[in-house]
Every structure is written in C-alpha cells, then in structure tokens.
Amino acid sequence: QTVHVKGVQYHFPNPEEAVKFALKVAKDLGGRVEFHGDEIHVE
C-alpha cells in the first residue's frame, strides 16, 4: 500500500497502517485523503 503526501511516497505492508497514517497526516496538514485503487493520496 502506497501513501502519497506532497510528492513523497510512503510504503506500508499493511493497508490498515497506511490508512491510519494517511488520516493522521491529512488531519495534521488540514488536507483530505483520496483513495485511488491501491494508492492513497493526501491532498
């Protein structure tokens, strides 16, 4: 599972961890989380 944050990719073997990370980052940055297939983008 890959999380993209402002052009940087973070790889997580566990999808659940990836989602938790993405939600935390989005909250910290005041952004939103978008799901694109296997990828999660924080915009």
Rank of each mutant, 00 (worst) to 15 (best):
Q1E: 05
Q1C: 13
V3Y: 00
V3M: 00
V3R: 00
V5C: 04
K6R: 12
K6N: 15
K6A: 14
K6S: 14
G7T: 04
G7A: 05
G7W: 04
G7L: 04
V8S: 07
V8F: 10
V8R: 10
Q9H: 09
Q9I: 15
Q9V: 15
Q9W: 12
Q9M: 14
Y10C: 03
Y10G: 00
Y10T: 03
Y10M: 04
H11P: 04
H11K: 09
H11R: 09
H11T: 10
F12P: 01
F12W: 03
F12K: 00
P13A: 14
P13E: 14
P13L: 13
N14F: 06
N14T: 14
N14D: 11
N14R: 06
P15G: 10
P15Y: 15
P15R: 15
P15K: 15
E16R: 08
E16M: 11
E16P: 05
E17L: 11
E17A: 12
A18D: 00
K20P: 02
K20F: 08
K20H: 08
F21A: 03
A22N: 00
L23D: 09
L23Q: 12
L23S: 08
L23I: 13
L23R: 08
K24V: 08
K24I: 08
K24A: 14
V25H: 05
A26E: 02
K27C: 09
D28G: 07
D28W: 10
D28E: 15
D28H: 11
L29K: 05
L29M: 12
L29S: 10
G30N: 12
G30I: 04
G31F: 11
G31A: 11
G31L: 13
R32A: 06
R32T: 11
R32I: 11
R32E: 05
R32V: 11
V33H: 02
E34W: 14
E34P: 01
E34Y: 14
F35A: 04
F35C: 05
H36S: 08
H36T: 07
D38S: 13
D38Y: 09
D38P: 08
E39G: 14
I40S: 01
I40R: 01
H41I: 11
H41G: 02
H41N: 04
V42K: 01
